[in-house]
């Protein structure tokens, strides 16, 4: 039988996979975002306010929080669409810090059963009690997380094999060439960023309801750096790449008791080795293509 610790690790893998997919979507369109944690945080707060203070149903709050994160992602992308490279990365980091610092000042509380509940600046936002009020076990909530993750992966998989996926990869590899093929660069960059915001938002809202307490410090730059690293380690050839990165970090490194306390050092080293020997990650485009060909068992496309 799975114990609670193991279930927590498994559910963590599921939720963090969503922000890793978010960073991956930006990576395949050719940019490096250090700010996906902002969308994770926006949805965590918005979704929790919706269920805890407004009494919305869970699914509606999940869509609301993620939608808000998607809109924020699209807006930031529209504002930064004319910059790229390091300037884009710095802009996304600056936005994420702006969100985190704003949440440190954000107070929105209701009195419920004689108790003040809601986000209260640096004190955070506790009493996100949807799990308890609905008598959801850890196992049930883990299954719910994986249902959402499965739907997200299926959606991104469909996109990757569609015209839209082709356009995202064209943008990532050579935006000038994409534009002379007739691709409207701005439209698709904003669309990719909105989808990425939405994906991070799903993870953020689920995270808040899993831990029942959130504070702005959770959504700091390290969360963004990790979400980036997962894609770079796992590979940029398929949506399964970033999930491999998450499993390696949270599932594998965290579970080895002998390296507890040194996890970040091992993770940093792993990252450096990967960037030198496999700069596009384990499941890069070539390996994914060869695997597909092997799977199909034929040579013609």
């Amino acid at each position: 039988m799975l114990n609670d610790y193991l279930l927590t690790v498994i559910s963590n893998i599921g939720m963090i996979s969503m922000i890793a997919i978010s960073a991956y979507l930006i990576l395949i369109t050719g940019e490096i975002s250090f700010g996906q944690q902002a969308y994770f945080g926006i949805s965590a707060y918005a979704g929790s306010i919706a269920t805890t203070l407004w009494g919305w149903p869970f699914w509606m709050a999940l869509i609301f929080g993620s939608f808000l994160a998607g809109v924020a992602g699209g807006l930031i992308s529209a504002l930064t669409v004319r910059i790229n490279g390091i300037y884009y990365s710095i802009a996304t980091l600056a936005f994420a810090e702006m969100v985190r610092l704003s949440l440190l000042k954000f107070s929105y509380q209701f009195e419920i059963d004689g108790e003040w509940i809601g986000p209260n600046g640096s004190e955070g936002f506790g009493e996100i009690r949807w799990i308890f009020e609905n008598d959801i076990s850890i196992l049930e909530y883990t299954l719910l997380i994986y249902l959402v993750l499965f739907l997200l992966i299926a959606f991104i998989y469909l996109i990757e094999h569609s015209k839209l996926g082709m356009i995202f990869r064209m943008l990532g590899q050579d935006p000038l060439l994409a534009s002379v093929q007739g691709v409207k660069i701005i439209r698709y960059k904003v669309l990719a960023a909105s989808l990425a915001g939405f994906a991070a938002g799903l993870g953020g809202m689920l995270y808040a309801h899993s831990f029942t307490y959130i504070e702005p410090q959770i959504f700091n730059v390290m969360l963004g750096v990790h979400s980036l690293a997962y894609g770079l380690i796992g590979g940029l050839g398929t949506v399964l790449g970033p999930i491999i990165g998450v499993v390696l970090d949270i599932g594998f490194l965290e579970s080895i008791r002998g390296i507890q306390g040194y996890r970040m050092i091992v993770f940093g080293g792993l990252m450096a080795v990967m960037l030198i020997f496999m700069p596009r990650g384990i499941l890069d485009e070539k390996r994914v293509h060869r695997f597909k060909k092997f799977w199909e068992g034929k040579t013609h496309v």
Partner: peptide, 25 residues
């Protein structure tokens, strides 16, 4: 093959060539 197919993403001659025409390639 994908490089050649990439050239067709914005061409509207094929009615099934919409955003989610799966699988594009």
């Amino acid at each position: 093959m994908e490089n050649i197919m990439a050239s067709l993403v914005t061409k509207e001659k094929n009615k099934r060539n919409n955003w989610f025409s799966y699988p594009f390639t």
